[in-house]
């Protein structure tokens, strides 16, 4: 159980970015994820991938933040992809009936083109 979130950012170029989230996303930490995500939605970004294989727990505040990301991506254009969801997190998306709304990759291709390893 981690009370703080960590982020690892990887950029292929100025239009493609990957953000790896590490920790538990709760009402306590989701504002930090929002802060980290929001600057990416500039209109010039073609692809934003959020890698969640380091997240073992996510509640509705985290999902709501990702829904905001999806809404921003629709406004600014570009793909918004969720990648590497663990079973616990995928289950919450399914319970919220949002698992078909997002573009979700289980073990997606990272920006480098390497296969991401499962958690």
């Amino acid at each position: 159980m981690q009370t703080q979130l960590k982020f690892e950012r990887q950029e292929r170029d100025e239009n493609h970015i990957q953000l790896k989230v590490i920790g538990d996303v709760t009402i306590h930490t989701s504002p930090r994820m929002r802060e980290e995500l929001k600057p990416f939605f500039t209109g010039s970004m073609q692809e934003i991938r959020v890698v969640l294989d380091g997240v073992d727990f996510m509640d509705s505040s985290g999902i709501a933040t990702l829904v905001e990301g999806l809404q921003w991506s629709r406004l600014t254009g570009g793909r918004f992809i969720l990648s590497g969801l663990r079973d616990n997190v995928r289950d919450v998306f399914a319970l919220a009936k949002l698992d078909t709304v997002f573009e979700i990759e289980q073990f997606g291709q990272g920006l480098s083109g390497n296969e991401e390893s499962p958690a």
């Binding site: 509640d59 509705s60 999902i63 709501a64 809404q71 919450v92 319970l95 919220a96 009936k97």
Partner: peptide
């Protein structure tokens, strides 16, 4: 119904509570 364009505050949490 979960509407991505119009999620109401607290609604998603209640939906999860109700479903589990």
């Amino acid at each position: 119904v979960t509407d991505v364009d119009d999620l109401c505050p607290g609604g998603l949490g209640l939906k999860l509570i109700y479903s589990v």
